[in-house]
Design a protein around this nucleic acid. Structure first.
Lengths: 205, 205
DNA sequence: CTTGTTTACTAAACAGTGTTTAGTAGATTT
DNA sequence: AAATCTACTAAACACTGTTTAGTAAACAAG
């Protein structure tokens, strides 16, 4: 029955077409400014067609959110080839921020907006990407513990602490909450705060 | 000329009426779900009237955002009466999270959403609240430095680091990004991460 | 090859959104 | 009493996400 297989394949291709159109518009214009009608126009289909392939707008955002996680995890890889576990950790932190800075719309979707999260109610397989990304961090921290760099015993808790710091730094900057610093000093203060954090946990964690 | 003064007063009262109606609805139903028309209905005026007192929706959100800062600063006060500077710092952190947990809509507006920030383009007096709140933290950190609890020299950078950790912790939780932890463990992990951070900076900052 | 059925798609409508425009009662001034 | 000004609103504009009803084309069965 090659016919149902072809249909299946065409359906999958259509999903991809919509996703790519949506992604392009989202990354170009930001989220708030992209509507279902825009996406439909871009791929030359009617708005209603999109609803045959995605439950709603959040479902579409969730799909893009996943692409973002794949991209981020890919960009994490080079950091993992560093020799010293602590160096790996620091490089992961820097890459987290760089990813956010270069892909603010992805970052929004992955860590700030609630929309894609709303789309994944009930389903469980759905946290795989987030888990994988966090898993990379936990493994790195565990290596630091195992090689005696850190004295803490709980890698998960330590990871949570580290992620919080790096994420907070990043999110406050991206959401323009550091305007109390002069524009030219802003990134410097962030960098110094990160470095201070690195030195503090190197000595005391 | 008591008449122009009365008009002035009435204008101010109308601004307050709108603001209170808006605030009530926002805190009750969340932001996404409150429209200008809802607010207009609640205070029994037409939607257009609101635009005679506030430039646009963002302007209104900015006004509420300010109320949030006043509330938060007020809730910070008791922490400042503690004797040891380090205890003050820890208590500030706990109160930051508690405020966010108990007033998620305010917290969103104050630290996550971009809408109120967009409303304050150009104007400068406008960062006063944010500056004041951050100032409380910096003073506290400076006290820690002065009493020899911290060895770092730069209170601003250290404050930025501390704020980042506490904010990151809070924001990730509020935006449901900790679903990789089982529901009952979630707050526990956060708490432990915070405590670990506190111990780490007590020893090594 | 002609039926009948299923599939893929869309035009139009629904119920909302933020915001602007034009116009009207009533208070204030002359 | 007439003219002006103020405070307000009805209605419209240009959007939004989503659903419904209906249509052409592709397919399956006789």
């Amino acid at each position: 029955m090659g016919i149902t297989e072809r249909k299946e394949r065409e359906k999958e291709e259509m999903r991809k077409l919509i996703l790519q159109g949506a992604q392009k518009l989202f990354l170009e214009n930001g989220f708030e400014k992209v509507s279902i009608r825009n996406i439909a126009d871009a791929i030359e289909y009617s708005p209603a067609t999109i609803y045959l392939y995605y439950k709603d707008k959040n479902d579409l955002l969730y799909a893009i959110h996943n692409i973002g996680f794949q991209k981020m995890i890919a960009e994490f890889q080079p950091a993992l080839s560093l020799d010293a576990p602590f160096d790996r950790l620091v490089e992961l932190g820097r890459r987290y921020f760089r990813f956010a800075f270069e892909n603010p719309e992805f970052f929004d979707l992955m860590f700030i907006m609630t929309a894609p999260i709303d789309a994944m109610a009930c389903r469980d397989d759905i946290w795989d990407e987030g888990k994988a990304a966090f898993g990379i961090l936990v493994k790195c921290v565990q290596d630091c513990i195992d090689t005696g760099v850190f004295k803490t015993r709980d890698a998960e808790v330590a990871s949570m602490m580290i992620w919080s710091m790096v994420h907070g730094n990043t999110a406050l900057f991206l959401r323009k909450r550091l305007e109390m610093f002069e524009e030219n000093r802003r990134k410097e203060v962030m960098e110094e705060a990160f470095n201070l954090f690195v030195e503090t946990i190197r000595k005391g964690l």
